[in-house]
């Protein structure tokens, strides 16, 4: 920013403040998905039989696989923070790279999963879908909306983690100033947290 010197000359970077900001941002994200969860809850109580049937169409194997992938990636992010705190930059970067690779695997799985649905002509607006019973139609609408929005968050998380890697390399993030990696980590855990709830709702409750 042009007038950076207008900002209060910060004697020290407000570590607690930036983390609090990140937590509050996470709350807004939770409520964003929370709106969709509300819709899911309402329609599920109204059309439980249809939801039951439709949920059997989703691929539990890919869903479970993706759950495992995301859980492992959550651990690697958490470990990379430990690495930074104990001044091991190389390991932190390697762990973040593993996380990004895992995120990629998640996205590739998602691609095949969605691709399969499209082959079966189960996409929003398709004739097959429109002729299904109301509840199943709603289930697939929610399925695409929720997993789609989640996938978008995975992408954003990947970008954030990439930025973090570059900031570690350039020396801006180190054992004395690790707000960025911690906040990107919090964001990545949020992505995981949402998936933890999406997974049973879309794949298991049959």
């Amino acid at each position: 920013m042009a007038e950076i010197k207008n900002i209060a000359p910060s004697e020290h970077h407000d570590y607690q403040g930036s983390k609090m900001g990140m937590w509050i941002f996470i709350f807004t994200e939770l409520f964003l998905f929370g709106g969709l969860f509300l819709v899911y809850a309402v329609f599920r109580t109204q059309y439980s039989a249809d939801f039951h049937k439709a949920a059997e169409e989703t691929n539990t194997f890919i869903g479970t696989l993706n759950t495992i992938v995301l859980l492992i990636s959550s651990m690697t992010v958490a470990m990379s923070i430990t690495a930074i705190q104990s001044n091991n930059k190389g390991r932190a970067i390697r762990l973040l790279l593993v996380t990004i690779v895992l995120a990629l695997i998640f996205m590739v799985n998602k691609y095949f999963e969605w691709g399969h649905k499209f082959e079966l002509r189960l996409y929003p607006g398709s004739v097959v879908l429109t002729n299904l019973p109301k509840g199943e139609l709603l289930f697939f609408g929610l399925y695409f909306m929720m997993t789609g929005l989640h996938a978008l968050h995975v992408l954003v998380g990947m970008i954030l983690l990439t930025v973090t890697i570059f900031r570690i390399k350039s020396g801006h993030v180190h054992s004395g100033n690790f707000s960025l990696i911690e906040n990107s980590g919090l964001y990545w855990h949020l992505v995981d947290l949402i998936w933890i709830f999406l997974f049973p709702m879309m794949y298991l409750i049959t």
């Binding site: 919090l186 947290l193 933890i196 049973p200």
Partner: peptide, 18 residues
Amino acid sequence: VALLVASVKGTTVLTYFM
């Protein structure tokens, strides 16, 4: 059961990873 397990998992992530 599914939601209960999900809640336990979520709490674990919040408590330790986060």
